[in-house]
Design a protein around this nucleic acid. Structure first.
Lengths: 164, 164
DNA sequence: TCGGAATACCTGATCAGTCAGTTACTGTTG
DNA sequence: CAACAGTAACTGACTGATCAGGTATTCCGA
């Protein structure tokens, strides 16, 4: 019946300790992301996924970005992208056009309203990153922390599971 | 009409640069968390929220934890907790009992199956943390990075929005 | 150049969360 | 101790994602 539970052996106890420690760290990463996402939602009235799309489109300037590419930048299935862009189009933030180079594809582009929203949300976001990610850390750690996050962003990109 | 777009002034250009940089970092945190969460789901057959509940309950040993407390540890409304625990109960991972000290409350406790699942998932999780968070960083950075994450986990806790 | 595999997007069904409101109980205060 | 505010958990309606499958188009090799 295993009534001794999770820490019934020394080996398990050691694992348990480690996981609890790391569990909190993961929780930290998750909560920080959650806080930043919520802030965008509350202060700018768009979801955090919409915000990320605005950033992606802003980076591409006025070339337009395919649905596919948006799905790959984010962690979102193609169906998810379709619906997300649907809502953004309804909200007047983006517009879709046929891709002249591939008649299956569609290109997504910022509207002027979308651009303004991107700038506004970016400002809010930046401020929140400063407050929640940077200021709590000792001055001397900040640079290295950001550098490490940058490294991890690349491994994360490679490790991303393929979504349909 | 603002056809110049996101980078139409020098001020905006500077902001844009900053946001894109930080945007990637946020994305990194998000993606790492996502990867870890997906791994648990794929390899252990439980959602990442279930896993966090298992950890919380494991930490409390066999005292039982109130729904309220679970909701506060995680970022989840009370309705969300009710439904999450419903599913976990259905899956045989936890059991609910009335709280003898407060007849409004219920206490949630691990079942033996839940304990085994917690240990299994924790092992998977630990391995993934090592691979995705630690190994990519230079040896000399790892300690400080973990320390910084620990600091941030505390500010994150304080900054959490109150969910009903 | 024809036919099948791959690709880009969309859609119906479902799932897991939020939100707002309800019920049952507790704690407080006049 | 009666009234009433506050609290813990639950629920119906809704939202925004996934998944699986569909259609139109493109790519590629025999």
């Amino acid at each position: 019946m295993d009534e001794d539970g999770l820490i019934s052996t020394a080996k398990q106890a050691a694992d348990h300790e480690l996981v609890l420690g790391f569990g909190r760290l993961l929780g930290a990463a998750g909560r920080l992301e959650y806080i930043l996402g919520r802030a965008i939602e509350v202060e700018c009235g768009i979801s955090h996924l919409m915000f990320e799309v605005l950033l992606i489109l802003g980076r591409a300037a006025n070339d337009g970005v395919s649905m596919k590419a948006i799905g790959q930048e984010q962690v979102l299935t193609t169906g998810g992208v379709t619906r997300l862009v649907d809502r953004m189009e309804e909200a007047g933030l983006v517009e879709r056009t046929d891709d002249p180079a591939d008649r299956r594809g569609r290109l997504v582009r910022l509207t002027p309203l979308g651009e303004r929203k991107a700038v506004q949300a970016a400002r809010v976001h930046l401020e929140n990153i400063r407050r929640h990610f940077l200021e709590p850390l000792p001055e001397s750690h900040r640079q290295q922390f950001m550098e490490d996050l940058r490294i991890l962003s690349h491994t994360a990109r490679d490790a991303l599971p393929r979504l349909r």
